[in-house]
Deep mutational scan, measured.
Amino acid sequence: CHSECLGNCSQPDDPTKCVACRNFYLDGRCVETCPPPYYHFQDWRCVNFSFCQDLHHKCKNSRRQGCHQYVIHNNKCIPECPSGYTMNSSNLLCTPCLGPCPKVCHLLEGEKTIDSVTSAQELRGCTVINGSLIINIRGGNNLAAELEANLGLIEEISGYLKIRRSYALVSLSFFRKLRLIRGETLEIGNYSFYALDNQNLRQLWDWSKHNLTITQGKLFFHYNPKLCLSEIHKMEEVSGTKGRQERNDIALKTNGDQASCENELLKFSYIRTSFDKILLRWEPYWPPDFRDLLGFMLFYKEAPYQNVTEFDGQDACGSNSWTVVDIDPPLRSNDPKSQNHPGWLMRGLKPWTQYAIFVKTLVTFSDERRTYGAKSDIIYVQTDATNPSVPLDPISVSNSSSQIILKWKPPSDPNGNITHYLVFWERQAEDSELFELDYCLKGLKLPSRTWSPPFESEDSQKHNQSEYEDSAGECCSCPKTDSQILKELEESSFRKTFEDYLHNVVFVPRKT
Rank of each mutant, 00 (worst) to 15 (best):
K103V: 06
K103G: 15
C105W: 00
L107V: 10
E109R: 04
G110W: 08
G110L: 11
K112V: 07
T113E: 12
I114Y: 06
D115F: 04
S116P: 01
S116L: 05
V117A: 15
S119F: 04
S119V: 07
Q121G: 01
E122T: 08
L123S: 02
C126P: 00
C126R: 00
T127S: 11
G131F: 01
S132Y: 01
L133D: 00
L133N: 00
L133R: 00
L133I: 02
I134F: 09
I135Y: 02
I135Q: 00
R138L: 07
R138W: 08
R138E: 04
G139L: 12
G139V: 15
G140Y: 08
N141S: 11
L143G: 15
A144V: 15
A144F: 15
E146W: 07
E146Q: 08
L147Q: 02
L147C: 03
N150K: 15
L151N: 00
G152C: 11
L153Y: 07
L153Q: 06
L153I: 12
I154T: 07
E155N: 11
E155Q: 04
E155D: 08
E156Q: 07
G159A: 04
G159H: 02
G159C: 01
L161Y: 01
L161C: 06
K162L: 11
I163M: 10
I163P: 00
R165S: 15
S166P: 02
Y167A: 15
Y167H: 03
Y167R: 10
Y167M: 13
A168R: 15
L169H: 08
V170R: 03
V170W: 06
S171I: 02
S171Q: 14
F174L: 10
F174W: 06
F174I: 14
R176S: 13
R176D: 02
K177D: 15
L178M: 13
I181V: 09
R182F: 10
T185L: 07
E187C: 13
E187T: 09
I188F: 10
N190R: 09
S192A: 02
S192P: 05
F193H: 01
Y194C: 15
Y194R: 11
Y194S: 08
A195V: 08
L196Q: 13
N198T: 02
Q199S: 05
Q199C: 10
N200K: 15
L201F: 11
L201H: 00
L201I: 04
L201M: 02
L201N: 00
R202G: 15
Q203V: 04
L204Q: 01
L204S: 05
L204D: 00
W205V: 04
K209Q: 06
H210K: 13
N211A: 12
L212T: 12
L212N: 01
T213I: 14
I214Y: 03
I214A: 07
I214C: 10
T215F: 09
T215R: 14
L219P: 05
L219M: 12
F221M: 14
F221P: 00
Y223W: 09
Y223Q: 05
N224R: 00
K226D: 09
L227S: 01
C228T: 03
C228L: 06
S230L: 12
I232V: 03
I232M: 09
E236G: 02
E236F: 13
E237F: 05
E237T: 09
V238F: 09
V238C: 13
V238S: 13
K242S: 08
K242A: 03
G243W: 03
Q245G: 15
Q245I: 07
E246G: 14
E246C: 03
E246A: 04
R247F: 10
N248C: 13
D249L: 15
D249A: 07
D249N: 10
I250L: 09
A251W: 15
A251G: 07
L252F: 14
K253V: 11
T254S: 07
T254W: 04
N255E: 03
G256H: 04
D257E: 07
Q258W: 12
Q258N: 07
S260A: 09
C261E: 09
C261M: 02
E262V: 06
E262P: 04
N263I: 05
L265S: 10
L266A: 02
L266H: 01
L266E: 00
F268H: 01
F268A: 01
F268I: 02
F268V: 05
S269I: 14
I271L: 06
R272L: 01
T273G: 06
T273Q: 08
S274F: 11
F275S: 15
I278T: 03
L280T: 14
W282V: 04
W282Y: 01
W282A: 01
P284L: 14
W286F: 05
P287N: 03
P288K: 07
P288W: 10
F290I: 00
F290T: 05
R291T: 14
D292G: 06
L293Y: 04
G295N: 10
M297W: 10
L298C: 03
L298V: 08
F299C: 03
E302N: 09
P304H: 04
Y305Q: 06
E310S: 08
F311R: 13
F311G: 09
D312Q: 03
Q314Y: 02
Q314F: 07
D315V: 07
D315P: 05
A316R: 13
N320V: 02
S321Q: 15
S321G: 03
S321Y: 02
T323Y: 06
V324S: 06
V324A: 06
V324T: 06
D328H: 05
P329L: 04
P330G: 05
L331Q: 15
L331K: 11
L331D: 14
S333W: 01
N334W: 05
D335S: 15
K337W: 06
K337G: 09
S338N: 07
Q339M: 08
Q339A: 10
Q339K: 12
Q339D: 10
H341M: 07
H341W: 07
G343T: 05
W344R: 10
L345C: 05
R347A: 06
R347I: 05
G348S: 14
L349G: 01
L349R: 02
L349T: 03
P351E: 03
P351L: 03
T353C: 00
Q354P: 10
Q354E: 09
Y355R: 00
I357H: 00
I357N: 00
F358T: 04
F358M: 06
F358D: 01
V359S: 02
K360V: 13
T361V: 04
L362S: 07
V363S: 07
T364Q: 01
F365V: 09
R370G: 15
R370D: 07
T371A: 08
T371H: 10
T371N: 09
T371G: 08
T371M: 07
Y372A: 01
G373H: 02
A374Q: 03
A374L: 06
D377T: 11
I379S: 09
I379E: 12
V381C: 03
Q382R: 12
Q382I: 14
Q382P: 02
D384A: 13
A385K: 11
A385F: 04
T386M: 09
N387I: 06
S389M: 05
S389A: 04
V390T: 12
V390I: 15
P391V: 06
P391I: 04
L392R: 14
L392A: 04
P394G: 04
S396K: 11
S398R: 10
N399C: 11
N399F: 15
S400P: 04
S400V: 06
S401I: 13
S402W: 06
I404G: 00
I404M: 12
I405L: 15
K407M: 15
W408T: 00
K409L: 06
